[in-house]
Design a protein around this nucleic acid. Structure first.
Lengths: 117, 117
DNA sequence: AGGAAGCGTAACCTGTAGGTTACGCTTCCT
DNA sequence: AGGAAGCGTAACCTACAGGTTACGCTTCCT
């Protein structure tokens, strides 16, 4: 995930939702096999899942590893301003979610803009 | 930050607080200059700050870049389970913080275990 | 003053990440 | 059936990340 191309792929998948490999590849200046290998790395890292539909392979984001990373980063961002005891963040989030739900909140959807690339 | 050694250095700095370079170096099997360069990378990435005290150089974590990273990761971890509208996470956190403070909660500190390295 | 302590940098070597071209396998179309 | 579309993989090449040893500069001690 350190690689800039890989990050762009992830961002693309985030904005545009599931995309077939070729669709991803043609967005980059590098060759298609190169992108293909990047996708393989992402696959093996568990950051994306692939689903074969017909003769094309759709790639989707998998939030799992991202959550792990955020969890790892947590302690590093906390100690500064906050008072070292926000480990209950996730539970708080869940509480918030429940509250929102009961208040009846409309979902917004992920598929949004498609601008700067 | 992709490098495992670098991550270990960061974890060490997290657990043990500011440390001189040599103190960091002797925790690793690799040579001291190697660690020194890792520290330079971390310095240039802004992940750590250095302060010269006497003839030794103390390294400290800088939360800034970590926050950026978490911010970048945010959109990736949200879309799955939650209903796409947790952008108010930070404000929630602050609210939580206020609540905790008024309830009078003892801080725990960061310095904890010192085991597996 | 002068040696030791504490670090950083330079020069060098090697493994590997990431690019390219060539090739092979399915799946769809007519 | 057979060609085109859509992808992945293999083989190969090159640049760079990360390790080591050698060296130089301050700062402390006696």
């Amino acid at each position: 995930m350190a690689d800039p191309v890989r990050r762009q792929i992830l961002e693309l998948l985030l904005r545009g939702g599931p995309r077939p490999a070729g669709d991803v590849a043609e967005r980059f200046a590098i060759s298609r096999p190169a992108v293909s290998r990047h996708l393989r790395v992402l696959r093996r890292s568990g950051l994306v899942r692939d689903e074969l539909v017909g003769r094309q392979r759709l790639y989707t984001l998998d939030p799992g590893p991202f959550e792990e990373l955020v969890a790892w980063l947590g302690p590093f961002v906390r100690p500064s301003g906050w008072e070292h005891r926000l480990d209950a963040l996730e539970t708080e989030v869940y509480r918030t979610r429940r509250e929102r739900r009961t208040r009846g909140d409309a979902g917004q959807g992920v598929t949004g803009q498609e601008s700067t690339a």
